[in-house]
Amino acid sequence: MENPLEQFAIKKLFPWQAGGVDLSFTNSSLCMVITVGVIVIAMLLALRKCAIVPTKKQAFAESIYDFINGMIGETLGHEGYKFVALIFTLFTFIAVGNMLGLLPYSFTFTSHIAAVGTLSVFCLLLNIFFGLKHRGLKYFHTFFPEGLPLIMAPLIIPVETLSLLAKPFSLTIRLAVNMSVGHIMLEVLGTFILTMGLFGFIPLIADMCIIMFELFVTLLQAYIYTTLSCVYLSQAISDEE
Protein backbone atom coordinates (compact mmCIF):
# COMPACT_ATOMS: atom_id res chain seq x y z
CA MET A 1 0.00 0.00 0.00
CA GLU A 2 1.29 3.43 -0.92
CA ASN A 3 2.00 6.00 1.73
CA PRO A 4 -1.04 8.34 1.67
CA LEU A 5 1.11 11.21 2.95
CA GLU A 6 3.51 10.99 0.01
CA GLN A 7 1.23 13.22 -2.05
CA PHE A 8 2.01 16.13 0.30
CA ALA A 9 5.80 15.83 -0.10
CA ILE A 10 7.52 19.01 -1.24
CA LYS A 11 9.86 18.38 -4.17
CA LYS A 12 12.45 20.91 -5.23
CA LEU A 13 12.14 21.61 -8.95
CA PHE A 14 14.79 24.35 -9.14
CA PRO A 15 17.02 24.30 -6.06
CA TRP A 16 18.23 27.76 -5.04
CA GLN A 17 20.05 28.87 -1.91
CA ALA A 18 20.45 32.57 -1.16
CA GLY A 19 22.33 33.70 1.94
CA GLY A 20 21.72 30.41 3.73
CA VAL A 21 17.99 30.63 3.03
CA ASP A 22 16.34 27.94 0.93
CA LEU A 23 14.45 29.79 -1.84
CA SER A 24 13.98 26.75 -4.11
CA PHE A 25 11.15 26.67 -6.60
CA THR A 26 9.10 23.65 -5.50
CA ASN A 27 6.08 21.70 -6.76
CA SER A 28 4.03 23.80 -4.30
CA SER A 29 5.32 27.04 -5.89
CA LEU A 30 4.56 25.65 -9.35
CA CYS A 31 0.96 24.89 -8.34
CA MET A 32 0.57 28.39 -6.95
CA VAL A 33 1.84 29.86 -10.22
CA ILE A 34 -0.53 27.61 -12.19
CA THR A 35 -3.42 28.67 -9.93
CA VAL A 36 -2.70 32.36 -10.52
CA GLY A 37 -2.32 31.67 -14.27
CA VAL A 38 -5.66 29.84 -14.42
CA ILE A 39 -7.45 32.67 -12.59
CA VAL A 40 -5.91 35.41 -14.75
CA ILE A 41 -6.57 33.58 -18.03
CA ALA A 42 -10.14 32.67 -17.01
CA MET A 43 -10.90 36.26 -16.02
CA LEU A 44 -9.31 37.69 -19.18
CA LEU A 45 -11.30 35.27 -21.36
CA ALA A 46 -14.51 35.92 -19.48
CA LEU A 47 -14.20 39.69 -19.53
CA ARG A 48 -12.65 40.09 -22.99
CA LYS A 49 -15.80 41.43 -24.60
CA CYS A 50 -17.91 43.03 -21.90
CA ALA A 51 -21.50 43.71 -22.83
CA ILE A 52 -24.55 45.11 -21.04
CA VAL A 53 -26.31 41.81 -21.70
CA PRO A 54 -23.58 39.44 -20.51
CA THR A 55 -22.51 36.24 -22.17
CA LYS A 56 -22.37 33.06 -20.06
CA LYS A 57 -18.65 33.53 -19.36
CA GLN A 58 -19.09 37.18 -18.39
CA ALA A 59 -22.10 36.29 -16.21
CA PHE A 60 -19.99 33.65 -14.44
CA ALA A 61 -17.19 36.13 -13.67
CA GLU A 62 -19.72 38.76 -12.59
CA SER A 63 -21.53 36.28 -10.34
CA ILE A 64 -18.26 35.58 -8.47
CA TYR A 65 -17.72 39.33 -8.13
CA ASP A 66 -21.33 39.79 -6.91
CA PHE A 67 -20.87 36.97 -4.42
CA ILE A 68 -17.75 38.60 -2.95
CA ASN A 69 -19.39 42.02 -3.01
CA GLY A 70 -22.40 40.63 -1.10
CA MET A 71 -20.15 38.91 1.44
CA ILE A 72 -18.26 42.15 2.04
CA GLY A 73 -21.48 44.14 2.32
CA GLU A 74 -22.77 41.70 4.95
CA THR A 75 -19.65 41.58 7.09
CA LEU A 76 -17.82 44.86 6.54
CA GLY A 77 -20.67 47.15 5.45
CA HIS A 78 -20.25 50.13 3.14
CA GLU A 79 -16.74 50.76 4.46
CA GLY A 80 -15.58 47.39 3.16
CA TYR A 81 -16.11 47.89 -0.58
CA LYS A 82 -12.56 49.16 -0.98
CA PHE A 83 -11.32 45.69 0.05
CA VAL A 84 -13.18 43.91 -2.78
CA ALA A 85 -9.99 43.37 -4.80
CA LEU A 86 -8.17 41.86 -1.81
CA ILE A 87 -11.00 39.54 -0.78
CA PHE A 88 -11.73 38.55 -4.40
CA THR A 89 -8.06 37.60 -4.85
CA LEU A 90 -8.06 35.61 -1.60
CA PHE A 91 -11.24 33.71 -2.49
CA THR A 92 -10.30 32.85 -6.06
CA PHE A 93 -6.74 31.89 -5.10
CA ILE A 94 -7.88 29.48 -2.38
CA ALA A 95 -10.90 28.11 -4.27
CA VAL A 96 -8.99 27.47 -7.52
CA GLY A 97 -5.96 26.13 -5.59
CA ASN A 98 -8.22 23.71 -3.72
CA MET A 99 -9.96 22.57 -6.89
CA LEU A 100 -6.78 22.13 -8.91
CA GLY A 101 -5.49 20.00 -6.05
CA LEU A 102 -8.26 17.50 -6.78
CA LEU A 103 -6.88 16.76 -10.24
CA PRO A 104 -4.76 13.61 -10.59
CA TYR A 105 -0.97 14.15 -10.23
CA SER A 106 -1.46 17.71 -9.03
CA PHE A 107 -0.42 19.13 -5.68
CA THR A 108 -2.68 20.74 -3.06
CA PHE A 109 -0.64 23.65 -1.69
CA THR A 110 -3.58 24.61 0.56
CA SER A 111 -2.96 21.42 2.57
CA HIS A 112 0.38 22.86 3.71
CA ILE A 113 0.44 24.84 6.92
CA ALA A 114 3.47 26.83 5.66
CA ALA A 115 1.63 28.08 2.55
CA VAL A 116 -1.74 28.82 4.18
CA GLY A 117 -0.05 30.10 7.36
CA THR A 118 1.90 32.69 5.37
CA LEU A 119 -1.34 33.85 3.76
CA SER A 120 -3.04 34.02 7.17
CA VAL A 121 -0.17 35.95 8.78
CA PHE A 122 -0.29 38.34 5.82
CA CYS A 123 -4.03 38.81 6.51
CA LEU A 124 -3.31 39.45 10.21
CA LEU A 125 -0.67 42.06 9.35
CA LEU A 126 -3.12 43.72 6.96
CA ASN A 127 -5.75 43.73 9.73
CA ILE A 128 -3.33 45.44 12.10
CA PHE A 129 -2.29 47.94 9.41
CA PHE A 130 -5.87 48.86 8.47
CA GLY A 131 -6.92 48.86 12.13
CA LEU A 132 -4.18 51.38 12.95
CA LYS A 133 -4.95 53.40 9.81
CA HIS A 134 -8.69 53.61 10.54
CA ARG A 135 -8.68 53.97 14.28
CA GLY A 136 -5.22 55.31 15.05
CA LEU A 137 -4.07 54.65 18.60
CA LYS A 138 -7.64 53.64 19.50
CA TYR A 139 -6.82 50.33 17.82
CA PHE A 140 -4.96 49.36 21.02
CA HIS A 141 -8.30 49.39 22.84
CA THR A 142 -8.71 45.96 21.20
CA PHE A 143 -6.24 44.68 23.78
CA PHE A 144 -7.66 46.66 26.68
CA PRO A 145 -11.21 47.98 26.15
CA GLU A 146 -11.92 51.52 27.32
CA GLY A 147 -13.56 51.87 30.73
CA LEU A 148 -12.10 48.75 32.32
CA PRO A 149 -10.31 49.22 35.67
CA LEU A 150 -6.52 49.25 35.24
CA ILE A 151 -6.17 46.36 37.69
CA MET A 152 -7.70 44.08 35.02
CA ALA A 153 -4.88 44.84 32.55
CA PRO A 154 -2.60 41.88 33.48
CA LEU A 155 -5.54 39.55 32.84
CA ILE A 156 -7.18 41.12 29.81
CA ILE A 157 -4.10 42.05 27.75
CA PRO A 158 -2.65 38.48 27.53
CA VAL A 159 -6.11 37.05 26.82
CA GLU A 160 -6.76 39.55 23.99
CA THR A 161 -3.23 39.13 22.61
CA LEU A 162 -3.63 35.34 22.49
CA SER A 163 -7.05 35.81 20.92
CA LEU A 164 -5.50 37.97 18.16
CA LEU A 165 -2.59 35.59 17.56
CA ALA A 166 -4.99 32.65 17.40
CA LYS A 167 -6.84 34.13 14.42
CA PRO A 168 -4.28 33.24 11.71
CA PHE A 169 -3.68 29.93 13.44
CA SER A 170 -7.37 28.92 13.39
CA LEU A 171 -7.71 30.06 9.75
CA THR A 172 -4.67 28.02 8.75
CA ILE A 173 -5.47 24.85 10.64
CA ARG A 174 -9.07 24.72 9.44
CA LEU A 175 -8.15 24.99 5.77
CA ALA A 176 -5.01 22.84 5.85
CA VAL A 177 -6.59 20.04 7.89
CA ASN A 178 -9.76 19.92 5.80
CA MET A 179 -7.76 19.69 2.59
CA SER A 180 -5.30 17.09 3.93
CA VAL A 181 -7.97 14.81 5.40
CA GLY A 182 -9.98 14.73 2.17
CA HIS A 183 -6.93 13.88 0.08
CA ILE A 184 -5.76 11.20 2.50
CA MET A 185 -9.22 9.60 2.36
CA LEU A 186 -9.16 9.65 -1.45
CA GLU A 187 -5.69 8.09 -1.57
CA VAL A 188 -6.52 5.35 0.95
CA LEU A 189 -9.73 4.41 -0.84
CA GLY A 190 -7.90 4.61 -4.18
CA THR A 191 -5.44 1.91 -3.13
CA PHE A 192 -8.36 -0.32 -2.07
CA ILE A 193 -9.76 -0.19 -5.63
CA LEU A 194 -6.80 -2.19 -6.91
CA THR A 195 -6.27 -4.46 -3.93
CA MET A 196 -9.91 -5.57 -3.65
CA GLY A 197 -9.92 -7.05 -7.15
CA LEU A 198 -13.47 -7.78 -8.35
CA PHE A 199 -15.00 -5.95 -5.42
CA GLY A 200 -12.94 -2.87 -6.25
CA PHE A 201 -16.06 -1.14 -7.52
CA ILE A 202 -17.21 -0.60 -3.90
CA PRO A 203 -14.30 1.72 -2.94
CA LEU A 204 -14.49 3.19 -6.47
CA ILE A 205 -18.08 4.33 -5.85
CA ALA A 206 -17.09 5.59 -2.40
CA ASP A 207 -14.15 7.45 -3.95
CA MET A 208 -16.45 9.07 -6.51
CA CYS A 209 -18.81 10.19 -3.74
CA ILE A 210 -15.89 11.59 -1.74
CA ILE A 211 -14.62 13.50 -4.79
CA MET A 212 -18.04 15.13 -5.13
CA PHE A 213 -18.04 15.90 -1.43
CA GLU A 214 -14.48 17.25 -1.64
CA LEU A 215 -15.53 19.54 -4.48
CA PHE A 216 -18.16 20.99 -2.15
CA VAL A 217 -15.61 21.19 0.69
CA THR A 218 -13.06 23.04 -1.49
CA LEU A 219 -15.54 25.82 -2.22
CA LEU A 220 -16.93 25.83 1.32
CA GLN A 221 -13.46 26.14 2.84
CA ALA A 222 -12.54 28.97 0.48
CA TYR A 223 -15.81 30.67 1.44
CA ILE A 224 -15.18 30.16 5.19
CA TYR A 225 -11.59 31.43 4.89
CA THR A 226 -12.63 34.60 3.08
CA THR A 227 -15.69 35.24 5.29
CA LEU A 228 -13.57 34.94 8.41
CA SER A 229 -10.91 37.21 6.91
CA CYS A 230 -13.70 39.75 6.33
CA VAL A 231 -14.99 39.28 9.91
CA TYR A 232 -11.50 39.76 11.38
CA LEU A 233 -10.97 42.82 9.18
CA SER A 234 -14.31 44.27 10.30
CA GLN A 235 -13.33 43.67 13.95
CA ALA A 236 -10.03 45.48 13.33
CA ILE A 237 -11.52 48.55 11.65
CA SER A 238 -14.77 48.87 13.59
CA ASP A 239 -14.92 51.10 16.66
CA GLU A 240 -17.16 48.64 18.54
CA GLU A 241 -15.43 47.05 21.51
Binding site: L162, S163, L165, A166, K167, F169, S170, I173, R174
Partner: peptide
Protein backbone atom coordinates in the same frame (compact mmCIF):
# COMPACT_ATOMS: atom_id res chain seq x y z
CA UNK B 1 -14.33 24.65 17.62
CA UNK B 2 -11.34 26.32 15.97
CA UNK B 3 -11.79 29.62 17.83
CA UNK B 4 -11.82 27.74 21.13
CA UNK B 5 -8.85 25.46 20.50
CA UNK B 6 -6.55 27.91 18.65
CA UNK B 7 -5.71 30.29 21.56
CA UNK B 8 -5.07 27.32 23.88
CA UNK B 9 -2.65 25.85 21.37
CA UNK B 10 -0.95 29.21 20.76
CA UNK B 11 -0.71 29.78 24.53
Amino acid sequence: AAEFIAPVFIG
